[in-house]
Each structure stands twice: as structure tokens, then as C-alpha cells.
Design a protein around this nucleic acid. Sequence first.
DNA 1: GTCGTAATTGAAACTAGTTTTCAACTACGT
DNA 2: ACGTAGTTGAAAACTAGTTTCAATTACGAC
Lengths: 128, 128
Amino acid sequence: MTAPRRAVLRALARAQRPLSVEELHERAKAQHARLGLVTVYRTLQVLEELGLVRRIHEQGACRSFAASSPGHSHAITCERCDKSSEFNGDDVCLLTGAIERKTGYRVSGHWLQLVGVCPSCRKSGAER
Amino acid sequence: MTAPRRAVLRALARAQRPLSVEELHERAKAQHARLGLVTVYRTLQVLEELGLVRRIHEQGACRSFAASSPGHSHAITCERCDKSSEFNGDDVCLLTGAIERKTGYRVSGHWLQLVGVCPSCRKSGAER
DNA sequence: GTCGTAATTGAAACTAGTTTTCAACTACGT
DNA sequence: ACGTAGTTGAAAACTAGTTTCAATTACGAC
């Protein structure tokens, strides 16, 4: 555990929304000025393997990352402010039985990404 | 609707698994020899907007595409042979209520990608 | 505290993937 | 057959991500 890695972790932990590698680099440099972009990539790779970070899949590319709690969970991202939260994913597991029956596949894994409007944007913005 | 586009569509329609842009280019060239890679990119973009093609999101990058039927559905990909199928996604919509209560977000969209073992691989391979 | 080793770092070079540019070409309605 | 708007492919430009390598750093053994 080195200073550069701590800087990346800290920037990720503080973020309220998924960050691209570039953004993360910018922010983490506040903690550790001579941090290299390469180290951000490498640190993310390690953290992803450890399950501490999740990649956020979006429409086109999938280049953003967010901190993730251990255990089975999914992310929901606000379409207005990009803020990202997690929720427990056990409900989804209940669906696998139905899906196995429908498709004939044996389901071994899944992931789900949700988009919505977060509570504070619901208050401030016009309700649809 | 031009010959190059037809070639791309045809290669996609025939594929039993998601294809990368390169693979698609290779296969579509069988129909239209001097097809440019750029055209494949452009055609995919158009088809994606029309909802005829879906991007398959995988562990690391998300670079494969598969034909998709219109309407709300999700993809499931076989982890052994990569074959990809679709299924109706109405079940998942039932979850949004529970998720809205849990997170406070208003859910406006989602997508789900599943991984599993397809029927024919289940037969041939050793059952776990 | 000092030493040694193995892992980590950052810069630069490199590769892969994707987009833009632009002149030539093609589909399609007139 | 003609005109026009949209499409095409090659090359160049660009972006994201990876590899290489010498210098640096963490950390356990002494």
C-alpha cells in the first residue's frame, strides 16, 4: 500500500459519481502531485480484482469507475447529476429461475445497471 | 440501403455469438469484398440507433455486437461457446418498484446482461 | 537503524480501437 | 439519362489503454 494508491482510493471514495480514468487522475493528483496516469490504470485493475471498484457500463463506452462495497450489489446512476448509488442485488437472483426456464440456459452470473433520477434531483428538478 | 450495409446486416444476422467490429468486418467481406472497416462502424451506429443491434457488455471492454429483436429484451451469453440469446425482459420491470423504495431513486431505465451455459453446452460438457 | 529484495512507480514509446476528413461513388427520385 | 443527397473507403488523426524499463519505494530480516 503506497502513497499513489492511497491517493487513487481516496479520490474514488470521495466521488459522488462514477469517474473516468482521466478525472480520477486529476483528482488524485491533489493528494499526490506527481501521480502518473499509468498508476491510476494499474491501481484500478488491482482494485477491480479485489472487488473494491466497479466499472460502470453506460450507453456507448464503459469507461467510468466507482467505488463498490463488497458483496453482491448493483449500481444505479442518476441521469441528471450522475450520482451513483448501490443497492443490494438479492432480488435479481430470484429471477434467475424464471430465466433459466425461459431460455434453457443455466445462469451463472449477471449484472444489472440502472439509470434513474436520484432523490435530490427529484426534489429540485421538475417532476415529470 | 446499400450493398455494404446489407453485407454487415447479413453477417450479424448469421452470427451465433456476439462479434467484435473486426470479426464482423472479416465476415461481411465475404459478401462484399472491398468493404471498409469504417463502414462497419458507421453501419453499427445506425443499426444501434434503430434498435436492431445491441452492444454486448462484458467483463472488461464492451466491444461486441449482436443482432437484437425490437422491443424490450435482454441478452444472455454462454460462457463456454459465447453463443448469445435474447429473452423477454418484462420480469425485470417488476423489480423496479422494490428498487425505487430501497434507493429513493426514480428508475427510468436499466439493462441487464446475463452469463450462463447454453443448452447444448450443458449437454456436451460435464454438468457441474 | 541499515540492508536487501521484490514490488511499485512514472515517463516515454507503443498498440489498438475509433473517428474525422475528403474526394469518388452510388442509390434513388425526377 | 440526370441531379442531388447520402454513402463509401483510404488515409490521417485522434483517443484510450498497455508495455517497457530504469529509478524509486515499501517492508521484512538482521
